[in-house]
Design a protein around this nucleic acid. Sequence first.
DNA 1: CGTTAATGCGAATATCCATTCGCATTCAAT
DNA 2: ATTGAATGCGAATGGATATTCGCATTAACG
Lengths: 202, 202
Amino acid sequence: MRKQPQQKRSREMVRALVDATGLCIQRHGLDDTTTARIAEQAGVSVGSLYQYFGDKSALIEALMDRLAEDIAGGLRRLPLMAVNDLNEMVHRSIRFGFSVLRSRDGLYLELVRNWHRLPTHRMVDLLQQHFMELSRLYFLRHYRDYPIENLEVRVFIVTNSVLFTMVRHVSQGDVIGEEALARELTRMVAGYLAEPPETAAP
Amino acid sequence: MRKQPQQKRSREMVRALVDATGLCIQRHGLDDTTTARIAEQAGVSVGSLYQYFGDKSALIEALMDRLAEDIAGGLRRLPLMAVNDLNEMVHRSIRFGFSVLRSRDGLYLELVRNWHRLPTHRMVDLLQQHFMELSRLYFLRHYRDYPIENLEVRVFIVTNSVLFTMVRHVSQGDVIGEEALARELTRMVAGYLAEPPETAAP
DNA sequence: CGTTAATGCGAATATCCATTCGCATTCAAT
DNA sequence: ATTGAATGCGAATGGATATTCGCATTAACG
């Protein structure tokens, strides 16, 4: 941020600008989200925008940061540790994922469609991190006997598989139905996570 | 295509332009692939480009079409039907996928990084279709006894999972190692595909 | 050859947007 | 109320790039 807003008026403007960025992206798509439009939507002028954000991408990063915190919060709020059945735990996580993706009137969908030219990596990495942590705890508690060996790899695969299958599903006509998809995804993931480390023939 | 090339000279030019488009994307990235650069690379002028391609995106679509045919061809050339072990079959497919992604000096990587603003859907759908067809044949031949119920859903999940896990892996530093990733992906996919339709408790 | 249609050229044009800058307005402290 | 700092403005600027158009060159055919 180029300058710290000191007065109440300007703090509100910064807030309004980030809000407006989200709104514009959601309503007009990332391509048509211009500085002019953002400013107009926020009810301020373009010039003011540049008082507090070095450039347009700084604005978008601010938006992404806010969203990332949102997701992390929601994830933490799910009481997943208490769920004994692995299948059920995975299923709940996946359903949470779908609900996030559909929230905010398509904002997430538009962001996801444009993941590569956004600081999405930050967000994906963050999610991955959270899932990693969560999995570690979960397996420590529920699978004391044979702790999964290559949890890192497995969580990497599972997170990406689920994320992008969901994305593909949502960003095109859902020919399959969310219910079935969630169920089958859960079966694949839970089945894989529960597999013993190596299948070395005796 | 705006006009059909009638003379040999112009047919070669069209070819050269598509080649040049691929080269530019691969060398300079999609963002810096300008009509000027493409024309220069092809050794023709910008004006000539517009003789045969309505606009820049038409050129890129032509490139994508060519690549799609390439992949389809390679896929057909793999003798997967003969492989009895499901695990092995999946593993070979995945390794083929990696090899495609790495081929053409990073062209595919650049395209993949920018999938959303390209007619990539065409390509992904095509791939999915091919895998669907392939799976149907494979399971018909090898699993006569209980044919997989919801093959559509499973193939959808599996294709997307594998594709995008590979993409994520390749488009960032591979902290994991391709070998391990291919092995684990295979385990997840083969395990899931071989699962019986429903796990209704007796 | 000579004529016509096809092809090729690339400087000039058109468009779109991020970013700036000089001036106007509002705030806060005295 | 006065004043200096903070904030706000938005027309003007600049840069990038897709696309066009009038003229030059080349192929095809008699």
